[in-house]
Amino acid sequence: MKILTIIKRVPDTAANIKILEDGSGIDKTNLNYVTNPYDEYALETALRLKEAKGAELEVLAVSDNQDILRNALAVGADKAYMVEYADYDKLDPYNLSRIYAEVIKQKGPYDIILTGKVTIDDNSYAIGGYLAAFLGLNYVSHIVSAQFEGDELVVEKETDRGSETLSISLPAILTHERGKYEPRLPNLRGIMQAKRKPLDVLKLEDLGITITPAYEIIKLTPPPKKEGGRILESVDELVEVLKNEIKVI
């Protein structure tokens, strides 16, 4: 069995994010980069499936930096692919998915492909659905866990309907919500081992892909600024605010 986890290198949005004056992007000075948090949950589930089935686990990223792939190898992935592309952070989800799909065609087939439900940099939920369409895979999104019951892959989802338990036949692509278990951290032994694990660097030319943008980010604007808040002295005052200012009662 072969499993693939797709991960993306994104700015650490827990830190201060500044938009450039001209709105052309975010200020990259002093920016920290991390693995997209939802991809980390996907990787954790992939590791658990690998351990349960003795499967091979590969990871894939389009990036100009190997750091997140080395991390994935350090927590237990067996092999990594990096499609080297300097402007990876400007790729729209349509083109990014085309690149992933081409790598999967060339390096697969995979029984299970996992990735985050959303990438927090561009707030895109599209990768899973695009890959399911491009590759003709079975597909389920927003899972919180996945495990084998015998040979059946059983996933759980939390939705507006409630808690759902589904099974999905393979090959399939699954996108991950925040998981039921925290992603593991690399230990020293893992980090040492990761240095000897294979990490193949691919180029767009090798994949035969040319990029025609599917969208163009015209500008970034800051969220509407909040006027300075007002401290109210009593609950009566709050009721007045609800009545006269917010006008909701």
Binding site: N123, G129, F134, H142, Y215
Partner: peptide, 24 residues
Amino acid sequence: SSTVVGREIAPLVAGLVDAISVEE
């Protein structure tokens, strides 16, 4: 609508009809 169901279906439709998909 960009609900769980909507965000699941939107990119799949986009992939099938060769469209760009934007959510949220």
